[in-house]
């Protein structure tokens, strides 16, 4: 469902000149699987996912989402993905219902179908208590639920979560992770970026460790632990980052 091939992205920066944020990144994600993108802050996770959601244009390389090239058919790609990140805010002066309904309409869902879908989502995510509350008046947990509802309103085959739990308290984070799990079980193709190891261990079928714009390793958690001979994914992660930052020391 997601096919990324040698994706590269460069930015201009005053201090650094041309910065390669994403360097020839390739991976693949199949339906019914959660692919974890694990990396420290500034590793290029958000840039990669923004390219997949067509908000940014790749400098070179190609990416296909649900069969569409992100650079050539951005509208088709956007119609087939649900994207959620800490940057995708919700409108303060709209109620939960209005917010989700608005996006449903933008996705072109017919009105009667949309109403059914909304009722279903609001029940499923237990959002009926605050369906007419303005988003500005909501708690973080409620807001996160609205965001999830907004992400899945058009029932997209591909879902992209960019650090969806960052800044959330444990209860809300758990609810979000459960929602992601349910979506996987419904056969969605999910890509999930995070810097929290626990989430990766719990959730991801496969994981890619990304650092300074490059993918250092890809595989299931077990494969990686075995391959790099470390006790858990956390140690694998630090070992890989260490090796990439100081290649000479790693050899000795």
């Amino acid at each position: 469902m997601i096919h990324v091939d040698k994706l590269t992205k460069q930015f201009k920066d005053l201090r650094e000149g041309h910065v390669t944020v994403l360097d020839s990144v390739s991976f693949e994600v199949k339906p019914g699987e959660i692919f974890g993108l694990l990396g420290p802050n500034g590793a290029g996770k958000t840039t990669c996912l923004r390219i997949l959601s067509t908000v940014l244009q790749p400098s070179s390389g190609r990416a296909f989402v649900a069969g569409y090239d992100v650079a050539e058919h951005p509208e088709d790609v956007r119609a087939n993905i649900g994207f959620m990140s800490c940057n995708t805010g919700i409108y303060d002066r709209m109620t939960a219902w209005e917010m989700v309904e608005y996006y449903g309409r933008l996705y072109g869902i017919p009105e009667t179908q949309l109403r059914e879908r909304l009722e279903q989502i609001f029940t499923q995510l237990q959002m009926n208590d605050f369906r007419d509350v303005f988003c500005s008046k909501m708690s973080t947990g409620m807001k996160q639920k609205v965001s999830i509802a907004r992400t899945i309103v058009h029932d997209p085959p591909v879902l992209i979560f960019d650090e969806p739990t960052s800044g959330l308290d444990v209860l809300v984070a758990r609810a979000v992770l459960q929602a992601v799990e349910q979506l996987r079980d419904a056969g969605k193709c999910i890509i999930f970026s995070t810097h929290i190891m626990r989430e990766v261990e719990k959730l991801c079928n496969r994981v890619a460790i990304i650092h300074k714009g490059r993918i250092l390793a890809t595989g299931t958690v077990e494969e990686l632990v075995e391959k790099y001979n470390q006790p858990d994914i956390e140690e694998v992660f630090f070992a890989l980052i260490e090796r990439s930052d100081h290649p000479a020391e790693a050899v000795t």
Binding site: T54, V55, E75, N87, T88, G89, Y91, L106
Partner: peptide
């Protein structure tokens, strides 16, 4: 500033 722009950008609207 409020972060809703990116939400709108990933909707099918061009």
């Amino acid at each position: 500033e409020r972060g809703t722009m990116e939400t709108l950008l990933i909707s099918p609207a061009t």
